[in-house]
């Protein structure tokens, strides 16, 4: 058990190291000069002033040092929890900018991923072996899962926001409101949250339902199911066993899909101008804000890695065969 988790942790550690390095490299080797754009925004014309500002900013962000020094500084700051100062929202620290955006993203991703997984699995299991559902609702699932996230998001925004006018199409809350802990504000949040959530939920739902349907049919054809039927066990028991075993590959699927789901959520946020990490990334790119971009990416990478690690642990708990493998029985 300890060896298994040790190995897993080592792999996650390596992934994290590579992710951080790539993360550091991308903005630095991207075309464009952030300091120049900051100076330009300040609208100073005197060449000496421009020069002074450039020197000040370059020194402030540590861009005057050699690259390897910058890289080491980056790690040092990272371990202290310091992501630097945002260029776009200068002089707010990046960690503060991210902290305000993270709750929105989490509130979108966590319920949509978990709910679509649970509902999709239940529904797929239910549709398997029921001809009518299998022939009517699952094709809809295929269409849903084949849809790009932002495409469904645009459709939903158009239908429910523009045509029907039931939901707002932009923002995390009404522009006329200030965030506070009142029921009206919470309702307003929920109102703005519904459409982005639905678009994420629906796309993922179709995929899980189709996967589960196929897995259940496979499990119901398997030897242990046949044996139980031959002994006259009620189909309730057999279906319960089949569901339990068919969920295992779906858990792996969740781990594999996590990155895609997060990416989908980021794009959806942009469609709905939802104030989460996705919109933040867009803003950071538009404003050449290295530090914000790095910080956001890092946060996402960390989140995905942690979620994957949790799934690894869950898998060990639910599948006895992985436990047997860890003991070295199948080395």
């Amino acid at each position: 058990m300890r060896r298994y988790f040790g190995r897993k942790l080592l792999i996650y550690g390596l992934t994290f190291f590579v992710a951080v390095t790539v993360n550091w490299m991308i903005p630095r080797f991207m075309p464009g000069d952030p300091v120049a754009s900051m100076v330009a925004r300040a609208n100073v014309t005197k060449p000496e002033a421009v020069e002074a500002m450039r020197a000040y900013y370059t020194n402030l962000f540590g861009l005057d040092q050699p690259l390897w020094q910058q890289y080491l500084n980056f790690w040092g700051a990272l371990l202290r929890g310091d992501f630097g100062v945002s260029i776009w929202l200068f002089p707010t620290p990046v960690s503060d900018v991210i902290t305000t955006a993270v709750p929105y993203t989490l509130a979108l991703i966590v319920p949509s991923v978990l709910l679509s997984w649970v509902v999709g699995n239940r529904f797929g299991a239910y549709a398997a072996r029921r001809k009518l559902l299998d022939n009517t609702v699952l094709p809809v699932g295929y269409v849903l899962t084949a849809m790009p996230y932002m495409w469904l998001a645009v459709l939903l925004a158009w239908a429910f926001g523009v045509i029907l006018g039931w939901f707002p199409v932009a923002g995390g809350y009404s522009f006329s409101m200030r965030p506070n802990w009142s029921w009206t504000f919470l309702l307003d949040l929920l109102h703005h949250w519904t459409l982005p959530f639905l678009s994420l939920f629906l796309v993922a739902l179709g995929g899980w339902a189709i996967g589960m349907r196929n897995m259940i049919i496979y499990e119901l054809e398997s030897d242990y199911s046949n044996y139980l039927s031959a002994l006259g066990a009620p189909s309730r028991l057999i279906r319960r066993y089949a569901f339990r075993n068919a969920v295992l590959p779906q858990i792996t699927g969740l781990a594999l899909q996590l990155g895609v789901l997060v990416a989908g959520a980021l794009v959806t946020e942009i469609v709905f101008a939802y104030p989460g990490l996705g919109s933040l990334i867009l803003k950071a790119i538009q404003n050449k804000d290295f530090f914000l971009l790095q910080g956001t990416f890092l946060f996402i990478v960390l989140g995905v890695l942690i979620a994957n690690f949790i799934i690894d642990i869950v898998y060990v708990v639910v599948d006895p065969r992985t436990r047997a493998g860890m003991a070295g029985a199948q080395a």
Partner: peptide
Amino acid sequence: MNEFRFREVSLIPQYAMSALNPT
């Protein structure tokens, strides 16, 4: 037939090696 299975007629299947639920 369910009423008779297991109580009156029972089976040792050809696939006995994989007849038990693995989980």
